[in-house]
C-alpha cells in the first residue's frame, strides 16, 4: 500500500466488556463512517455486552485493575465505586455529545456500519438471536470475519 492511499475499509474487533474498552472501538467505527470509510464491527467475548439487550445499558467502567483510574484498587473495589465512576464518565461523554451505547450502536448502524457477533462467543455464552439488539447484521465465524475484512484494515480493541 502506498503511503498516501486513503483507507477504504476498517474492520474493528471489540473484545472487552468495560465501558472504556467498548467506546474507543465504537468511536473509531462511527468516525470511519463519517469519513466515508466502510466499517464493520465484530463483537467477541465480553465485548458482546455492547450488543445484547440485557447488558448494553449496564456496561460499567472498570475501577479495579485499572491503574489509569488513579484510585487504589481497594478503593475501586468498594461497592458502588464502579457505578459512580461510570456515571461521571457518562456525564462527561454526554457533554461531548457521545451517545450511550445502545444509541451509539443504532447511530453506527444507521450510518451504514455493520454489526456482527462472534459465533464461538455466542455459543459459549449460549446466546440466541433474540438476545441481541435489532441492529445485529449477523453471527460470524472467524473465517467469515476475515473474508469480510479482506482488502481493508483490521483493528483489535
Amino acid at each position: 500500500m502506498s503511503e498516501n492511499e486513503s483507507i477504504k475499509k476498517v474492520s474493528i474487533i471489540i473484545s472487552k466488556g468495560s465501558l472504556e474498552s467498548i467506546y474507543p472501538g465504537l468511536i473509531m467505527a462511527n468516525g470511519a463512517r463519517m469519513k466515508g470509510i466502510e466499517a464493520n464491527v465484530f463483537f467477541t467475548f465480553f465485548g458482546m455486552d455492547a450488543i445484547t439487550k440485557k447488558k448494553m445499558n449496564k456496561v460499567k467502567v472498570a475501577t479495579v485493575g485499572n491503574p489509569a483510574m488513579g484510585i487504589p484498587t481497594l478503593v475501586g473495589a468498594i461497592p458502588g465505586m464502579s457505578s459512580f465512576a461510570t456515571n461521571m464518565m457518562k456525564k462527561q461523554m454526554d457533554e461531548l455529545d457521545i451517545p450511550p451505547i445502545p444509541e451509539f450502536i443504532e447511530m453506527i448502524s444507521d450510518a451504514g456500519g455493520k454489526i456482527y457477533a462472534c459465533l464461538a462467543s455466542v455459543d459459549m455464552f449460549k446466546l440466541k438471536d433474540e438476545d441481541f439488539c435489532e441492529q445485529l447484521d449477523g453471527v460470524l465465524t472467524v473465517g467469515d470475519f476475515y473474508d469480510l475484512a479482506a482488502g481493508g484494515q483490521i483493528i483489535f480493541t
Binding site: 463512517r33 463519517m34 469519513k35 466515508g36 455529545d97 451517545p99 444509541e103 447511530m107 444507521d110 450510518a111 451504514g112
Partner: peptide, 27 residues
C-alpha cells in the same frame, strides 16, 4: 452540530443524512 444533535434537535435522521450526503455526510 454533531450528527447526534442534528437528529435530536433538527429532526434529521442519520440514515437520511448519509443517503443525501454520502461518504462524509457532515463534512
Amino acid at each position: 452540530p454533531t450528527i447526534r444533535r442534528m437528529k435530536k434537535e433538527g429532526n434529521i435522521s442519520t440514515k437520511d443524512l448519509y443517503d443525501l450526503f454520502p461518504e462524509g455526510p457532515l463534512m
